[in-house]
Amino acid sequence: MDVRLTTEQRELREAAARLADDLGPGSVIDLDDADRAARLEKAVAATGWRSLRSDGASGVEVALVVEEFARGLVDVPFLGPVLADDLQARSGAAVESVALAVGGEAVDARGLSAALRLVDNRVETTGVGEPVFGIDLTRTNAAVTDPVTAVGELAADAAQRWQALALVVTTADILGAARGAHALACDYAKVRTQYGKTIGSFQAVAHLLAESLALIEGSVSILRYAAWAVDELDPAEALRAGRFAKVYTERAARTICETSIQVHGGIGNTWECLAHVFLRRALTSGALFPVSLEEIDLGLS
């Protein structure tokens, strides 16, 4: 038993973090900066990370990149294309650079014109139409359009494993967004002064931020197991690990993001503060492949 990240995994995480810090939106205004988004798209495309799965990367590695991208609010498609890539690799469908469709929506589909989706165990390609309503300011969903074409069939095990990866990837996205919101709040608490002191020096504020950090650490631990399980455990076990990780992390992230808004005070309730952008992203990834507490079974290992 040794659950440390390998050197290669740590390096991958650092590279993803650097890319997100360099080219992700540093403010709400940056979200509308098309030049920046174009540079980010070029950089992400150049990494080849959207095809991590078909290139043989593990669930752990995919989760690390997704987490760092969410922490840096990377606002070009990633989570969707990564899951579509895994679906494509499993089904042998011959399509490239596509979005992922879930039900009637192509998710995380900004700028993409085709999608792959899994219906029961059938893999289909679909068209991608007009954007639909969404709360996330960093990613856009679009309507699924014709033509819909069946391109492959997954064995039940493979479909379950893909679903486990979907839970892991969305959980990693939630965790990354929560970490971003927490970092934003900690930075603010170190510079904002009231009563002649930084607000982080008041225990009432400091304790909220300390609680958030503990929730982040717990989420990291439970997610790491689920991410490892995608490739290493029986599909049913992997799916179960993903459910536990998602339920825990989703609840943690909501508290962390709400804390970030609270620590920012009035500013935290304004559009211009990034705190709500993190919250919106976490909520969006929570609602994608949702897991409820009622789905948690009590047969603990």
């Binding site: 038993m1 659950v3 631990s221 439970i222 536990f244 339920v247 507490l293 009590l298 290992s301």
Partner: peptide, 25 residues
């Protein structure tokens, strides 16, 4: 609901301890 949540929390701690003890390597 409290029992299900306790199960999730307990699983988190089980895995957290594994991570911490691995880091002690």
């Amino acid at each position: 609901e409290s029992l299900r949540w306790a199960a999730v929390q307990t699983e988190m701690l089980r895995l957290h301890v594994r991570r911490r003890l691995s880091e002690q390597l």
